[in-house]
Amino acid sequence: MAEIVTAYCASHAPMQAVDPESAPKHQADNFFAGLEHVRDQVERAQPQAVVMLSGEHFTSYFLDALPQLGVGLAEKYNTPSARWLRMEHSLLPGDAKLGEHIVAGLMERRFWPALSYEMEPDHGFLTVYDQLDPTWQLPFVPLVLNCTTPPLMTLRDSYEFGIAMGEVLRSYDGLERVAFVGGGGLCHFVGEPRIGDIDEDFERWFLEELGKPDCGELLDLPNDELMEAGNGTGEVRAWVALAGAMRGNQMTLLSYEAIYEWIIGMAVVTWTP
């Protein structure tokens, strides 16, 4: 059966790829040092595939049919967003069999994801994946979460989904080593007057609670209260899902910077497998 040999979450901001120098150097250096740390972890752990969670930005799905959860089942993924993100590659290798196992395993556990053979990984995935494997060789399974269009999963739902994901990945007999990664958040406002604001109090509180057993107070946070921290901040659902998958394992905060030039709080956390 597969082991989750690497588990981490990282914020994603297009600016980190398009114009990384726009951030104060010490902040960008600290954030990228966190990503370098997890890349070293990955090199040591040698996962055979990575399963990645990210929020939907109307790239793969729209309001005509928007799932709460969507799983990619493609053998390969075209990534038109890579061009404006100034990335060298444009084709990601998929792991369709692992994707199929995830769908079946989630259904056994009473979660009902949408299927997609043509998912289009956008900046939410690519900024994280490109740092994880700059050669774009590591087979990949994308899972999108609805994080912006109510009604939304609560953080408790996300945690329970993460527990199920942990069980599903560990029950896979097609590989021995899998990386599980969440992208998104932290605090940001999208397409509304407060764009550029960052609620640093929320971010520090969130990161502290995330590392507590069963996420401390986070699972009791109602969606309307979470929304007070920003209408894009709901992407932290991916982080809470990772915490569910890795419950019982120690979380470590590797870096945190509120980067106003990138309009978002940027952090990296990892769980010791």
Partner: peptide
């Protein structure tokens, strides 16, 4: 939806300082 507002604003070349007056 704010994700669409964001896409339109970016498409039109607006920057973050423009949002507050635009959506005042």
């Amino acid at each position: 939806h704010p994700v669409l507002i964001n896409g339109l604003a970016r498409n039109m070349g607006y920057r973050k300082a423009d949002y507050r007056p635009l959506l005042a």
